[in-house]
């Protein structure tokens, strides 16, 4: 049976982790590779590096992170943040990334999804959607890291993403992100039911029950997690044991 995935996300800036595990015993806590190794050992099913490097000149640092990770970590990993053309994707995949996640550039130019999936295959094109609840109880797509409303309906966009060849949707609830109140289950379920590609739930995890809900009620294929593991509140191993006991198909290791 296909296991539900738990995917830790590391924020990386200029080649260094700025939001990651708070492990005292880590030789170099700012090293993305060291953090990735710990998570892989703990049983992470995949990893996401979110590159939040602002300056254009420093953007090639992420390539070096990918090259190094690929030499030492043997689980799939995705790179997101600032990817705007086919050359960006090619460079990341050649360096050893398995998938890339695109967001703003996909909304501004939906053809980009089509070109990218035709060139590299749907399986490596993750489309990230930042969703915010509107006053009339719909969800609207936001771009530029949640700063710009687009007027686009999330469910319609999700369907278009699939039609254009996106292989997976990384769905973040802006309303829940950082709140620790749990994932937006209605949003997650509606998108999961609307498309036939896997949906990764993101934003709002505060405890293990929240992870369970994302799978059981939100029908997510995977959950993206950050702070609940980074700060040692729960271990990944503990989370997997909990989910397995509650009947969710999980890969134990």
């Amino acid at each position: 049976m296909l296991a539900k995935r738990i995917i830790p996300c590391l924020d990386v800036k200029e080649g260094r982790v700025v939001k990651g595990i708070n492990f005292l015993n880590l030789r170099d806590a700012g090293s993305p590779v060291e953090q990735a190794k710990v998570y892989a050992k703990e049983g992470a099913d995949e990893l996401v590096f979110l590159d939040i490097t602002a300056s254009f000149e420093a953007r090639k640092t992420i390539i070096e992170v990918v090259r190094e990770t690929c030499e030492q970590v043997f689980i799939p990993f995705t790179v997101g943040g600032g990817i705007s053309n086919l050359e960006d994707i090619r460079a990341l995949l050649r360096a050893g990334a398995d998938k890339v996640s695109i967001n703003t550039s996909a909304v501004e130019n939906p053809d980009f999804i089509k070109m990218a999936s035709q060139e590299f295959g749907s399986q490596c094109i993750v489309v990230a959607i930042d969703a915010k609840l509107t006053e009339d109880s719909q969800w609207e797509v936001y771009t530029y890291g949640g700063r710009k409303p687009t007027g686009i309906d999330v469910l319609e966009w999700a369907e278009e993403v699939q039609a254009l060849g996106g292989g997976e949707i990384l769905l973040t609830s802006m309303d829940r992100d950082g709140t620790k109140q749990g994932y937006d289950l209605e949003l997650t379920r509606k998108v999961s039911q609307r498309v036939n590609i896997p949906v990764i739930a993101s934003g709002g995890a505060g405890n293990l029950e929240h992870l369970y809900q994302a799978f059981a009620q939100g029908l997510a294929s995977a959950v993206l997690v950050a702070s609940i593991f980074h700060y040692g509140e729960y271990s990944l191993r503990e989370a997997k044991k909990y989910l397995k006991e509650k009947g969710i198909p999980i890969r134990m290791c």
Partner: peptide, 13 residues
Amino acid sequence: SKKIKIPHMGWNQ
């Protein structure tokens, strides 16, 4: 078959 999520992506036994 079209009834399941495609691609088959993730860890399976």
